[in-house]
Computed example of a mutant assay.
Amino acid sequence: MPILSNASLKLAVAAASFGIAAVAGAAQPEVVPALPTQFETLHLRVTVDACNFDENSLTLELRERTIVATFKPRLCIVPGPPKVVDIELGAYPAGDYQAELYVKGERTPSVRVPFTVSGVVTTPTDPLPARPVADHSGLWGATEEPGWGLTLEQGPTFQIFGALYVFDAARQPQWYTLQAGRWETSTRWTGQVVKSEGPPWTSPNYPSDGAQYRSVGVATLDFQMIPGSEDLAAFSYTIDGQTVEKTISRYRLR
């Protein structure tokens, strides 16, 4: 490894300190999604110098309503190519915030982006519609039945979309989606099971009619937990008249 002179080292440090601002033609930093809703996961999208920016040194902290991201730059004699990075900021309640990105050791942020998180707008009704008090997004399955599973995504307006991947009687893989549902209580959700069919993935061209969809049954998820059974849910679903009931657990990826 070559030894840098003092002048070269100072130049390298200066280039590292201004690596973000120096990227030519960089798009303006922004928080995505552009119109965030409460408790929706947010990211700071910024164009950085690929050599200068060290994602492994990135730290994040909350200072009142300012989310501060800090990284320790690499020492680069020659600037790297520009690249776009999404820095996860977390999820927050409704209110006004700002995101700041600092080069470690600098007192002035390289990036500062103010943004507003909106509350969920609902139509007043009596009684109020049920809504969950937790986010149940993630990978679910039955530990004693490897090979099938359920992926859930719960949006900021509490809607759930699920992908169910199972095997049929001929031991062939099948997948279905859970959608168009509603919360019956704060822990119990019921929706439709939809089967999708379409052209094979090996087709060189996707036909204009694309895929076809049909409702084949209903599904119910109950996330009510009792002491000793945390991270378990009751799952029942019907496909073409056949009903299955089982207890599923959430997989925690470490």
Rank of each mutant, 00 (worst) to 15 (best):
residue 47 T to E: 11
residue 48 V to Y: 03
residue 48 V to H: 05
residue 51 C to K: 14
residue 53 F to G: 04
residue 54 D to A: 14
residue 54 D to V: 12
residue 56 N to V: 09
residue 57 S to T: 15
residue 58 L to P: 02
residue 59 T to N: 00
residue 64 E to R: 14
residue 65 R to H: 13
residue 66 T to N: 04
residue 69 A to S: 13
residue 69 A to L: 11
residue 69 A to W: 00
residue 73 P to I: 09
residue 77 I to F: 09
residue 77 I to C: 06
residue 78 V to H: 11
residue 79 P to N: 04
residue 80 G to L: 03
residue 83 K to E: 13
residue 85 V to M: 02
residue 85 V to L: 01
residue 89 L to D: 00
residue 89 L to F: 08
residue 94 A to S: 15
residue 96 D to H: 11
residue 97 Y to F: 14
residue 97 Y to V: 03
residue 98 Q to W: 05
residue 99 A to S: 11
residue 101 L to H: 06
residue 102 Y to G: 02
residue 104 K to A: 15
residue 105 G to Q: 00
residue 105 G to E: 00
residue 106 E to Y: 00
residue 107 R to C: 01
residue 108 T to R: 09
residue 109 P to K: 03
residue 109 P to A: 05
residue 109 P to N: 02
residue 112 R to M: 10
residue 115 F to G: 03
residue 116 T to V: 10
residue 117 V to P: 06
residue 118 S to W: 13
residue 120 V to Y: 07
residue 122 T to P: 10
residue 127 P to K: 09
residue 129 P to L: 02
residue 131 R to A: 14
residue 133 V to T: 15
residue 134 A to Q: 13
residue 134 A to S: 14
residue 139 L to Q: 10
residue 144 E to W: 12
residue 144 E to V: 07
residue 146 P to V: 04
residue 146 P to Y: 09
residue 147 G to A: 04
residue 149 G to A: 01
residue 149 G to Y: 09
residue 151 T to A: 10
residue 152 L to Y: 06
residue 155 G to I: 05
residue 157 T to F: 09
